[in-house]
Write a protein that binds this DNA or RNA. Structure first.
Length: 240
DNA sequence: GCGACAG
DNA sequence: ATCTTGTCGC
């Protein structure tokens, strides 16, 4: 998979905001996209081991055939993480390993799903939105917990599976609180880039099974990421 | 100083 | 995100 290079992410904190604001103007969330139009969909996630200096990140991308929902390819990347987690700037911490892993993919997924937000972000540049510029494909953000944007609270959707409520900020619906399974906590869906909110919601719901409130691709990447860490810690212990 | 805080 | 045992429930 051919990708753009990750620019120098090790910049100054204020530079992060400038980068996000510049890219925000290039986001397109007007495009309808049906799951039927997608041949492959990928889930992206990271796990961590250690802390501060010496923190290691494990990234995994699981590509599924949208028709059969079978994994058709996987790619991983392991490396030192030198950027701390700062709310609103998750991308700068995770993007390097995501791009490194994506470059190893032979197949180019038609869509990427992230564990985190899309445009439901203070500067409309959550990790799913930001990553789209490096992956060159439509992206969707699915966060497990709510990230409040400009004092906007979300309205609890009905208990039934598939119900949702819009999260409107400054008159625009940036995302939705979606009940992917009856009675469970909602997830927060927002388009990253190259797809509209309705489509993002439908795709996220269609890809969610009964085993988790998260879409299957994201869930798979999450589990795989823990396996990577477990194996890594085992060989760390056996080979000093 | 206090509260908020995607992963 | 990660640290962690048992425990309530389908």
């Amino acid at each position: 998979m051919q990708l753009n290079d990750v620019y120098s992410l090790r910049t100054e904190p204020e530079e992060f905001i400038h980068i996000q604001e510049r890219l925000a103007g290039q986001i397109d969330v007007s495009r309808p996209l049906r799951l039927d139009d997608l041949r492959t969909v990928a889930g992206v996630d990271l796990a961590y081991a250690g802390e501060e200096e010496g923190e290691t990140g494990f990234c995994h991308i699981a590509v599924f055939d949208a028709a059969t929902m079978q994994v058709v390819e996987r790619a991983e990347a392991v490396g030192k993480i030198d950027v701390p987690y700062i709310p609103g700037f998750l991308t700068f911490r995770e993007l390097p390993l995501i791009v490194e892993a994506a470059r190893k993919l032979e197949t180019v997924p038609d869509l990427f799903l992230f564990d985190g937000n899309g445009i439901l972000h203070p500067r409309r540049m959550g990790i799913a939105a930001h990553s789209s510029f490096f992956l060159g494909r439509p992206t969707i953000g699915v966060a497990k917990t709510y990230f409040k944007v400009r004092e906007t609270e979300y309205v609890e959707p009905e208990r039934e599976k598939g119900s949702w409520t819009d999260i409107i900020v400054d008159g625009e619906a940036l995302g939705r609180a979606v009940r992917t399974s009856a009675g469970v906590k909602p997830v927060f869906v927002s388009p990253g880039n190259g797809i509209d909110l309705d489509s993002a919601t439908e795709v996220a719901l269609s890809l969610t099974g009964s085993e988790s409130r998260l879409p299957i691709p994201v869930r798979e990447a999450d589990m795989a990421t823990r396996r990577m860490r477990r194996r890594w810690e085992e060989e760390q212990k056996s080979c000093p």
